[in-house]
């Protein structure tokens, strides 16, 4: 599969951590009440996808599963230079755990067509499991590189650095494959002028928007609804409990001159006991 490549990137809309999302009684998130944003970890995956396109040529498809407002994150990826978006939205997907999510995304990917490489974020800030990527790779029967910190492609092989405890692994993999991108990968570049302009046009014209963003449901992708949502999820949140922040109660020192701030800390702690005398 020589370049140009078909590049897929998976992005999720998550509740903004700044605005504390409420929880439903069953422990799932009340997405309606929360402010929404692109999962911060997916920004690195997006940059990786765009870098492949820039360096080797190809087309980037961003895929997301979520309620209809998730189209916002797909539009955001278009502003950065993504070519096509696919949104999987269906009420029957509610309360999916990672296994059910990976199944639904797997069916979406098969529907979306040929791919050479799939990028995922390391993890989400709401699910926070880092499981969906590898579970998806299992369904698709692909090799995977998780915690990928950097990579290049040569002769249709991927050469990657993977983070491990106390060091790195240098990996060589055939394509197609799935890569989860570490948060030490290159930062997401600014939106392109052309991309932003295009999205402005799309926002005014639904018909035009549908050319760039395909909306699908379980019937379109041919997914088995028994394997989706609550029914397809082998785990359940049985209970949640509020915990105090570990450490907690940080005494904040701010607003004065450095001299005063430091003075407060030096005087109110046991720092002096450890001085070299």
């Amino acid at each position: 599969m020589p370049a140009p490549y078909e590049i897929f990137v998976l992005v999720k809309q998550v509740p903004d951590q700044g605005s504390k999302a409420g929880l439903n009684p069953d422990g799932t998130i009340d997405r309606a009440r929360a402010k929404r944003m692109l999962n911060p970890f997916d920004r690195y995956a997006l940059q990786a996808a765009l870098n492949v396109k820039k360096t080797y040529g190809g087309r980037v498809t961003a895929i997301s599963m979520g309620p209809p407002p998730a189209v916002e994150v797909l539009l955001e990826t278009l502003e950065h230079g993504v070519d096509r978006g696919v949104l999987l939205s269906d009420k029957r997907l509610a309360a999916s755990d990672t296994l059910a999510t990976a199944y639904a995304l797997y069916k979406t990917i098969i529907w979306a067509g040929h791919y050479d490489v799939i990028f995922c974020g390391l993890q989400t800030t709401d699910g926070d499991t880092a499981q969906v990527g590898p579970q998806l790779a299992e369904r698709l029967g692909l090799p995977q590189i998780t915690y990928c910190q950097d990579f290049r492609i040569a002769a249709d092989q991927v050469y990657a650095d993977r983070i491990i405890e106390g060091g790195y692994q240098k990996i060589i993999s055939q394509m197609p494959l799935l890569i989860t991108v570490a948060n030490s990968y290159h930062r997401l570049e600014y939106k392109s002028f052309h991309g932003s302009w295009k999205v402005q046009q799309l926002l005014r014209n639904t018909e035009e928007q549908n050319k760039y963003i395909q909306s699908v449901d379980l019937d379109v992708i041919g997914a088995d609804e028994q394997r989706c949502g609550l029914k397809g999820s082998p785990t359940i949140v049985a209970a949640t409990e509020k915990v105090g922040e570990i450490g907690g109660n940080c005494s904040m020192h701010e607003g004065h001159s450095a001299e005063e701030l430091v003075g407060e800390v030096v005087q109110s702690t046991n720092l002096q006991e450890f001085l070299a005398i």
Binding site: Q131, Q144, T146
Partner: peptide, 20 residues
């Protein structure tokens, strides 16, 4: 980095639940 790479694949294979 090993466990979080391997566990989801085993769980998906057996279609069983996994908590991270």
């Amino acid at each position: 980095t090993t466990g979080r790479d391997l566990a989801p694949r085993i769980a998906a294979h057996f279609e069983t639940g996994l908590t991270a």
